[in-house]
Design a protein around this nucleic acid. Structure first.
Lengths: 213, 213
DNA sequence: GAATGTTTAAAACATGCGTTTAAAACCCCT
DNA sequence: AGGGGTTTTAAACGCATGTTTTAAACATTC
């Protein structure tokens, strides 16, 4: 259906509420009443867009990495893949843009989206990290490290505007491209994984000065 | 003005577009026309809300840390402060919630918000990290490490829904509280800072297999 | 080839929004 | 007490939205 294809970018650009069915239909070259006829209402169309994304993501996730790589290289490729998906231009990246909107204003489809798109990535990361950490590393630490990876990658999308303003254009072009960032993030995580024992038992001065305000 | 105080949480909860002046005025107990009379229009009220946040943040930022702490503890307190600000409940946290919305759908006030709220935090972090890293660490690496800190902290807000679904409630309550997360994040960054030399010259198999798709 | 079911088209409808208006209420000062 | 400037109130306006309606175009079947 042309409507679903045209609705995706529009929903991603404006969000569910700001996106108008009139713009979607104009973009798709169909009449306004079509959405009511085929999908019941505006949200039915949205639900269908999400289902289309799910199908695509599932197809993309089965692409497995070559199994003869070192854990370090597997982690690095994971990070690089996430970053390219995050930072791809608006033409390619409207899908992750839509997911971002779901994170900020979850609708009814949020739960299944996490289950079918985020959890596989999360579990893959945990597997790779388990190989990088010393044997016996706790499940907790593996999960926290996985979230550290995702968090660092995600920031270059949700905080793209902030980064653009904090880092001058010259340095941004030379040192904050996908390749450099992927090296940095995987390097940070590898350094942390090698010190996993220290991380498990870290103690600090902690509540000596409580700044919870 | 009662209007500004009441408008903050409403704008934070629904975003600028979904928030209605009728709800704001009902919450504030004033008439609908008040916003037009005092602030010109809806956006004028929004601008005033942002200015109020700025004043509060500036007052909060001058609270300096005790200077006799080790760099490790200063970093740890920085992280803990950011996390508590991020994860504070809706009653206290509507300000950072509003900033989050500005990051996703920037309005005209975004630029000054970054300049007066994000950059000071960023520079503070860079200073602390410079003490943790070996002498001669590049500016680029310091900035990437600072963004790694911010990214990891921020994820527990923007990805709060995802985390809630990925981590079972039991483990979340015991191991993903502010104190544990602060220890983890500062520990990761310290491990990375101590390996700064390796990070600067990291090389990987890189483009041997190109997954940019 | 006409009848019937399905899809598209244009227009109108109902609703909620931000904003404006005009009058009433209030406040302060002489 | 009274008048002038300021604030608050209730109602209405204009507009854009999602949705519905009604009829026309199309496709399919006998």
């Amino acid at each position: 259906m042309r409507l679903v294809a045209a609705a995706g970018p529009v929903f991603a650009k404006h969000g569910f509420d700001r996106a108008t069915v009139r713009e979607i239909c104009r973009e798709a070259g169909v009449n306004i009443a079509a959405v009511g006829y085929h999908f019941g209402d505006k949200f039915g169309l949205y639900r269908e867009v999400i289902r289309m994304i799910r199908r695509r993501c599932q197809a993309a996730h089965v692409v497995e990495l070559p199994p003869d790589l070192s854990p370090r290289d597997r982690l690095h490729l994971h990070v690089k893949m996430m970053l390219t998906q995050m930072l791809s231009g608006d033409d390619r990246g409207w899908e992750s843009q839509l997911m971002m909107r779901e994170m900020n204003q979850p609708t009814a489809v949020f739960v299944e989206m996490v289950e079918e798109s985020f959890r596989p990535t999360f579990e893959n990361l945990k597997r790779v990290l388990a190989e990088l950490c010393p044997a016996g590393t706790s499940e907790d630490l593996l999960e926290k490290l996985a979230l550290s990876v995702v968090g660092q990658c995600l920031y270059y999308r949700v905080g793209a505007g902030v980064v653009r303003q904090l880092i001058p254009e010259s340095r941004r072009a030379s040192s904050f491209d996908v390749a450099s960032l992927a090296r940095h993030i995987s390097g940070v995580i590898i350094a942390a994984a090698e010190n996993a024992l220290a991380l498990e038992h870290s103690k600090t001065i902690e509540d000596a000065l409580d700044i919870t305000r």
